[in-house]
Design a protein around this nucleic acid. Structure first.
Length: 415
RNA sequence: GUGGCUAUAGCUCAGUCGGUUAGAGCGCCUGGUUGUGGUCCAGGAGGUCGUCGGUUCGAAUCCGACUAGCCACCCCA
C-alpha cells in the first residue's frame, strides 16, 4: 500500500471487471443512440479554456473552482473538459456541420472536475451523452428524454429512477421572472441564510434549490417561474409534457430543478434515484438554444443530456460475466507446438481460447478451472500420434475423442 | 472548499489495559496424484500495522500533522 504509487486523488484504475461494467453501460447508450439515428463523435479531452468559459458561465462553480486549467508550453490556456456539450458544439462549428440539420450526435468518454471525491463523484469520471442540434420544436426535447428513458430501460433500471422535469422558460420569460424573483428575495434578504444571500448576488435562481432551512421557508412563498412564462414558453412546455404522456413516460414537474450552466433554457430534466445516496442524478440534461451563439456561431437550437457512467454502473451492478474459453492442454514439446497452431486456428474462427505457457497436466487443468473454461482440449503424445484430441466437458467431466482437424465442429460457439 | 468517520497480508476483517515473535477467513504457492481441474487433507509464502513526527523504558494501540478512502454539506451527471 505504498502511497506514492496510488493514482492521484479522485481517479482510479478500472480493472477488467470494472471495464466490462463500463462497457455494458456505454453499450446500452450506444445501441439506443444508434436506433434513433445518432452518430458517434469523439472530441479532444483537452480544449482551449474559452470553450468552457464562454459557454458554462463564469458564475458557475464548475468554472470558478473545479476546472483543471493550465498553460501549455506555448502559453495557451487549456482545460480538461468538465463536460462535453461545449466541446461537441465547438466541433460542430470547427467542422462546418451546420448545413445538414438536424444533427444528431452521441458520445462517451472521461470528464474532469476538481471536486472533493465521494461516492458517485470522482475527479476523472465518465459520461455518455446525446446532443440534438437544429430542432427548435418540443419534439426534440421529447426525443431526448425518451432516449434517456430507453437507456435506463435497456439497463433494467428505469423503475429504479424517476423523471423530474422543469422549464426555465425562454429568454424573455426568464428575464421577467428574474426581476420578480430578485425583487422578492431582496425584500426577504434578512431571512435568507449566508448561502442564500451569496446566491442572490451571483445566481438568484440557485436560491430556489438551496437546502438551507431558512432559504426553503423564504422560497416557499417565492414567485414561480411557471407563473411568469409567456404564452410561447408555456405552450412549449405543455407540448413537451404532452409528448411524454403520449409515450407513457411518468414524470413529476419539479420547479426546483435549476441548471448549473448558463446555456440552458426551456426544458431541464433529470432521471434521479434514491439508491445512490447524495449523488442520485444518473442522467441530466435539457435545452440549450443559446449555446451556439455564445460560442460565436450562428443561432442554432440544441437539446441533449449526459449520463454518469459510474453511477449507472453502481445502480445496475450485476457482474458482467467474462467469456468462458476453451482451454487447450498440451503435454510434451511436440504437443506444445501443435497446440499453438490449434489455438491460433480456433481463435481465428472466433472461439475464446486459453492456452497456458507452462505446467504439467494437473497445473494446466487447474488453470482451465480458474479461467472458468467450459471445455478442455487435451493433447498428449498418444492423441498426437492418432491425430485426435481429448475433449473434456469441465462441468460434467465427460470425455470424448475428436479428430484434431474437425475439433471446431464439436465446440460450443460461445462457451 | 467545510465538517464527521476510517486506514492492520492481494481481498474482507480481528487484535484486550500500551508489553516478547501482529492473527483469522478467502485468495495465492507446494505436496498428497507418473495423463486429469473443482471438493478434501497437510504444509508454505506474503505485513516499513497509510506516511512523518511526538509522548513513553516500551506504540498497531495514546497525541499531532499530512496523505488517501468513505459519509454529509456543497456541487453536479
Amino acid at each position: 500500500m505504498a502511497s506514492r504509487l496510488q493514482p492521484i486523488r479522485g481517479t482510479r484504475d478500472l480493472l477488467p471487471e470494472a471495464c466490462r461494467a463500463h462497457a455494458r453501460v456505454e453499450g446500452a447508450c450506444r445501441r439506443v443512440a444508434e436506433r434513433y439515428g445518432y452518430g458517434e463523435i469523439r472530441t479532444p479531452i483537452l480544449e482551449p479554456t474559452p470553450v468552457f468559459l464562454r459557454t458554462l458561465g463564469d458564475a458557475t462553480d464548475v468554472v470558478q473552482k473545479e476546472m483543471y486549467t493550465f498553460e501549455d508550453r506555448n502559453g495557451e490556456s487549456l482545460t480538461l473538459r468538465p463536460e462535453n456539450t461545449a466541446g461537441v458544439a465547438r466541433a460542430v462549428l470547427s467542422n462546418g456541420l451546420l448545413n445538414d440539420m438536424p444533427l444528431k450526435l452521441h458520445y462517451a468518454g472521461p470528464m474532469f472536475r476538481h471536486e472533493r471525491p465521494q461516492k458517485g463523484r470522482y475527479r476523472q469520471f465518465h459520461q455518455t451523452g446525446v446532443e440534438l442540434f437544429g430542432v427548435p420544436e418540443p419534439a426534440g426535447d421529447v426525443e431526448a428524454i425518451a432516449m434517456g428513458g430507453d437507456v435506463l430501460s435497456e439497463l433494467g433500471v428505469l423503475d429504479a429512477t424517476r423523471l423530474e422535469i422543469n422549464t426555465l422558460g425562454d429568454t424573455e420569460s426568464r428575464r421577467r421572472y428574474l426581476r420578480a424573483l430578485v425583487a422578492f428575495l431582496s425584500s426577504h434578504r434578512d431571512a435568507l441564510s449566508d448561502v442564500g444571500r451569496e446566491r442572490l448576488e451571483r445566481n438568484p435562481m440557485r436560491v430556489l434549490d438551496s437546502k438551507e432551512e431558512a432559504d426553503r421557508q423564504v422560497v416557499a412563498d417565492a414567485p414561480s417561474l411557471l407563473d411568469h412564462l409567456n404564452a410561447e414558453a408555456g405552450v412549449f412546455f405543455d407540448k413537451v409534457l404532452a409528448g411524454l404522456d403520449a409515450l407513457g413516460f411518468g414524470y413529476t414537474v419539479n420547479p426546483r430543478i435549476v441548471r448549473g450552466f448558463d446555456y440552458y433554457c426551456h426544458t431541464a430534466f433529470e432521471f434521479v434515484t434514491d439508491r445512490l445516496g447524495a449523488q442520485g442524478t444518473v442522467i441530466g440534461g435539457g435545452r440549450y438554444d443559446g449555446l451556439m451563439e455564445q460560442m460565436g456561431g450562428p443561432a442554432l437550437p440544441g437539446v441533449g443530456w449526459a449520463s454518469g457512467v459510474e453511477r449507472l454502473v453502481m445502480l445496475t451492478d450485476d457482474a458482467a460475466p467474462a467469456a468462458h474459453p476453451i482451454a487447450i492442454v498440451p503435454l510434451g514439446a511436440a504437443a506444445e507446438r501443435r497446440a499453438l497452431v490449434l489455438a491460433h486456428a480456433l481463435r481465428r474462427q472466433g472461439f475464446a481460447v486459453d492456452l497456458g505457457y507452462r505446467g504439467n497436466l494437473k497445473r494446466r487443468m487447474q488453470r482451465a478451472n480458474r479461467v472458468e473454461a467450459s471445455h478442455a482440449l487435451i493433447l498428449g503424445d498418444g492423441e498426437l500420434a492418432r491425430g485426435v484430441v481429448t475433449l473434456r466437458d469441465l462441468d460434467s467431466g465427460e470425455q470424448t475423442e475428436l479428430s484434431i482437424d474437425r475439433v471446431s465442429e464439436s465446440l460450443p460457439r460461445r462457451g
